[in-house]
Computed example of a mutant assay.
Amino acid sequence: MKISTKGRYGLTIMIALAKKYGGRPTPLKAIAKENNLSEHYLEQLASPLRNAGLIQSVRGAYGGYKLQKSPQEISAGDVIRVLEGPIMIVEGIENEEPAKQALWRRITEAVKDVLDNTTLDDLIQDHGEPKDAYMFYI
Rank of each mutant, 00 (worst) to 15 (best):
L67P: 00
Y41F: 14
E34T: 11
T12V: 14
E43S: 12
I80T: 05
L115F: 15
K19V: 04
K20A: 15
Y65F: 11
V111T: 08
M1Q: 09
I13T: 09
G60L: 05
T119Y: 06
S47Y: 13
S47E: 13
V111S: 02
A99S: 14
I87Q: 03
R106H: 12
E39N: 11
D122P: 01
P27G: 01
N95I: 14
D132L: 12
R24A: 08
G10Y: 07
S38E: 13
G7N: 06
N95D: 13
A133I: 11
K19N: 12
R8V: 14
A133L: 12
K112E: 12
R24K: 09
V90N: 02
I93H: 08
V90S: 02
H127G: 08
R105Y: 08
L54A: 05
G10C: 06
V58D: 07
Y9G: 04
Q101P: 00
I80C: 05
G64I: 01
E109L: 11
A102K: 15
V82G: 07
P71G: 03
Y65L: 05
R105A: 14
E91R: 14
I89D: 01
K6S: 10
G53W: 11
M14D: 02
M14L: 10
A102F: 14
L17C: 03
G53N: 08
G77W: 02
V111W: 03
R59N: 10
M135W: 13
M14W: 02
I107V: 14
M1I: 12
K112Q: 06
Q101F: 06
G60P: 02
S4M: 06
E91Q: 15
G64V: 00
M1E: 12
L103E: 15
V114S: 08
E94C: 05
L103R: 13
G22N: 07
I55P: 03
D122G: 04
S4N: 08
V58M: 12
H127R: 13
R81Y: 04
I74P: 02
L67G: 01
Q125R: 15
A32N: 04
Q125P: 02
G77V: 02
E97S: 11
D122I: 01
L37V: 08
L49E: 08
E97L: 13
E129P: 00
T118R: 07
G23V: 02
D122T: 06
D126W: 08
R50T: 07
L83W: 10
E73P: 01
D121F: 12
E129A: 10
A18N: 05
G63F: 05
T12Y: 05
A110L: 11
D116G: 00
K66Y: 05
Y21N: 03
S47G: 07
G53D: 03
A61C: 00
D122H: 09
G128A: 13
G60F: 07
D78Y: 06
Y9W: 15
I138T: 13
A99Q: 15
V90W: 02
Q44C: 07
T118Y: 10
G7E: 14
R24I: 09
L67D: 03
V111Q: 00
L28I: 09
L123K: 09
G85M: 13
P130T: 06
